[in-house]
Simulated assay, not measured.
Amino acid sequence: TGLSNLGNTCFMNSGLQCISNTRPLTKYFLENKHLYELNRTNPLGMKGHIAKRYCDLTQELWSGSSKTVAPLKLRWTISKYAPRFNGFSQHDSQELLAFLLDGLHEDLNRVQTKPYVELKDSDGRPDEEVAQEAWENHLARNQSIIVDLFHGQIRSRVRCLQCSTLSIRFDPFTFLSLPLPMDNSMYLDHIDLKQCLRAFTTEEELGKDELYHCGKCKTMQLAKKKLDIWRLPPTLIIHLKRFQFVNGRWIKSHKVVDFPKTDFDPSSFMTKPSFREESPPLYDLYAVSCHSGILGGGHYIAYAKNKVNNKWYCYNDSSCKEVSADNINVDTAYTLFYERQGIDYGDFMP
């Protein structure tokens, strides 16, 4: 089922089609499970309005009763809580998705009263202990179908260049936002997803405008920072950072990023020791949001795999056409959606 363009809303339609084809989340809404978990009193939420509107749209999309649906009420509700998405300007599909998933999480947060959580410094403790403590702190305040499906964990390690003291933090993520390796050309032929992951996990020296407050020096210092993946979610969303701020202005990278459609293994970019002993986590692609054209304009479409018949479809606003997996145009891929093999998604039902 296609989604009507309500005036430059292809950015929203593309993201919605990808999320709609996330099988366990759609099953959750089709079975009205959200009614048992609505958190209308959460001050960070939207009184259940986003969850209700998204559910209505999901049920309409999957009813099989129409070829095109107009997401008017969901768009109106999103614009009410995030006025930046109002009007008829083109917006960033990934930003819209981030707002929607965060809104759904807070509307469905099972934690009714969030406890105060104190962030402790790593202080030389083993990574496993610090990571588990950070994850438990996260879950003490955040539990929902969104957390269950999409949240992973990143290790951030900062080293003071003055005294070499290490500070290690573990933070949750919903999107893995990967840089596209830069060079002299924004149009250089093909790179692959592993090169993007390598760029993401390469240690970088922070600039003078990013000075780090060293706990030992007790002052702002130059530092080096390294990111690593620690915990992978069942549903992995990868955001390719095509829009970059270079030399004082925003530009779009048109590089073609090659990525696997099946058996994607990101474990070599993880630091969690247990993954070196277990069989590696493998992921299969099920949706892609694509952006063609220029920064501030252009057009979004989506490709997604229907879990009912295992066929791929191209979603271009109100148009929805079946395509073969080999004919998916991935040159303009912007956001990739992977699901992990071997997961029993029945476990995610309340």
Rank of each mutant, 00 (worst) to 15 (best):
I251V: 09
N21F: 13
V330K: 02
M349L: 07
F150G: 02
D263P: 02
F11I: 12
Y338A: 06
N247Q: 11
T262W: 05
V308W: 02
N109L: 12
R169Q: 06
I301C: 01
N310I: 06
H254L: 10
T22F: 15
D265H: 01
L57N: 14
E204F: 06
F264N: 07
D92P: 03
Y81T: 03
H239V: 03
V257L: 00
D331R: 11
S274F: 02
K27T: 11
N137F: 01
G48H: 14
R84I: 09
V130L: 02
R75V: 12
L285N: 01
C18M: 11
K241M: 05
W62R: 14
V130W: 00
R242N: 08
Q132G: 08
V257S: 02
M12K: 08
G298E: 03
R231N: 05
G248N: 04
I301F: 01
S289E: 02
Q244R: 07
N329C: 05
C290R: 02
N109C: 08
K80E: 06
Q90L: 12
H49W: 05
S79G: 14
S319M: 14
P260E: 08
I251R: 05
D123C: 11
S177A: 14
V257Q: 00
K224P: 00
S289Q: 09
K67A: 15
T262H: 11
C160P: 14
L180N: 06
Q341G: 07
Y338Q: 07
I237M: 09
N184A: 05
W250V: 07
K307S: 10
E210W: 04
E106Q: 15
I50D: 05
N21M: 14
V308R: 09
S89K: 10
F348E: 09
G7H: 13
E203H: 04
G215S: 00
T58D: 09
F269Y: 09
K216I: 07
I191V: 09
S4T: 14
G207H: 01
L6Y: 09
L6F: 14
K114I: 00
F264E: 12
L3V: 13
K52I: 08
S274C: 05
G7Y: 15
N316E: 06
S89H: 13
T1R: 13
S156I: 04
D209L: 11
K47R: 12
I78Q: 03
